[in-house]
Design a binder for these strands. Structure first.
Lengths: 229, 229
DNA sequence: CGAGCGATTGAAAAGACTCAACCACCGTGG
DNA sequence: CCACGGTGGTTGAGTCTTTTCAATCGCTCG
């Protein structure tokens, strides 16, 4: 549980920054960000931004998990990515000149800082290291999404679930995976019922443990094999 | 048919450049590119680069169409994008530091120029307009791929085919769509047989005309409706 | 003219989805 | 403290889309 009273995060002492694109900022750059940002506590299931609206800045995730998702024609969510501590969220739309093509929403209680568009773009313009980091990140994600598309198109739901659990295992690291069945289904790209049946199979095969809603990966090797790696 | 003897393209007179990210280059920048690039004629079905190899530079498509695809575990291609005249190909891997996650291969006879990695990265570093164009492009594609993923996960094959044909209609512009059934199936993300059956349906519904291998879109409105737009 | 690849068709099987019902846990308010 | 309502989780049955496999066709190129 987060300390809800502590809503202000200081960049210079921010633990999440070490793993972020701001990691290589020097001291006066950090101070600059510190002055420009605002900071807020988010409850579970609160939106950061919504598809088709226009971006006003970027979000810096200090604590918690955030889902990035698009909505299909019937309104069903497709989760594209789950962001964890240290990630900067929403910078894509800073450059594209388009409205957001995805939405972002907290999966749990979060501490999130905000940097305005102007400030962020200025930083990009003047700080080559940061800029290169951003370009690298954009590029990496683009590659990841090519793989994601291919998985969606060619793998069975069972294989995709295995793949998804591996990704989630990394994201949740030492914690247990903690998502609603619906969110997990929307990440895998399947119906909730199908997902539940497959989880049961995985459990019976000794691949995962199910602790009510939380999932624990028992046999990572088997998962990797299933995912086709 | 291309004039195969004319293998050299001059940037300053290159028609494709007008629609490219190099469009805003000033004269001496254009001269610079001109000096650095090499130029080649490609036959049909020739690879530009292959997944998991390391990038040596970027490709500038002067004439023709190029498919960008990933391979699934069984080797089946998933076409992610089809590039046309004016597009710069392979710059993602310039920044990511990773090997290519996709392959590129010509779909027809092409004229393609090549700019080495060093030269390209220098240009990016010094030319802010070009750089911003690249960042914008990376961002746009990232957004497009979120939509692509969602379509794959949620739409039926029929809907995806409609969607694909609309995209192809734009890419082939005034020409007729000219792909093997297999390539089209690998773009839509389905089996070749399924694709063929659906094409037949579309034809019977007066949506497309089939001229042996080439396809002509007759009723774009109906397609848009089918694609769920 | 024949080989071979790409295109097409049919039939059967499999995977996944939908719908409907039911359960279980949790927080709320009486 | 307990009944209530609601959300999220689970199960079963039936249906439908899509895939797979096998066979045939037909054009094009050498």
């Amino acid at each position: 549980m987060l300390d809800k009273s502590h809503k202000h995060v200081t960049c210079s002492t921010c633990g999440a920054r070490k793993n972020s694109l701001f990691a290589n900022n020097c001291e006066n750059e950090t101070t600059l960000v510190e002055e420009q940002k605002t900071c807020a506590f988010y409850k579970k299931n609160q939106p950061l931004f919504i598809e088709s609206s226009f971006p006003r800045g970027v979000f810096c995730l200090n604590q918690g998990k955030v889902k990035i998702f698009a909505r299909g024609d019937e309104g069903k969510e497709q989760i594209i990515h789950i962001a964890k501590e240290g990630e900067i969220i929403g910078f894509r739309a800073m450059f594209s000149g388009e409205p957001y093509k995805v939405s972002a929403s907290t999966l749990e209680e979060c501490n999130i800082c905000f940097i305005g568009k102007e400030d962020f773009l200025n930083m990009i313009e003047t700080n080559a290291t940061l800029r290169n980091g951003i370009m690298k990140e954009l590029s990496k994600e683009l590659g990841d999404r090519a793989v994601f598309i291919t998985n969606m198109a060619q793998k069975s739901v069972r294989e995709r679930l295995a793949f998804a659990l591996l990704i989630l295992g990394d994201i949740y690291d030492k914690e247990e995976i903690n998502l609603t069945r619906e969110d997990l289904a929307n990440f895998v790209g399947t119906a909730t019922e199908t997902l539940i049946r497959l989880l049961k199979d995985f459990k019976e095969e000794g691949i995962i443990e199910i602790h009510t809603r939380k999932l624990e990966i028992i046999n990572k090797d088997k998962l990797m094999h299933l995912a086709g790696k």
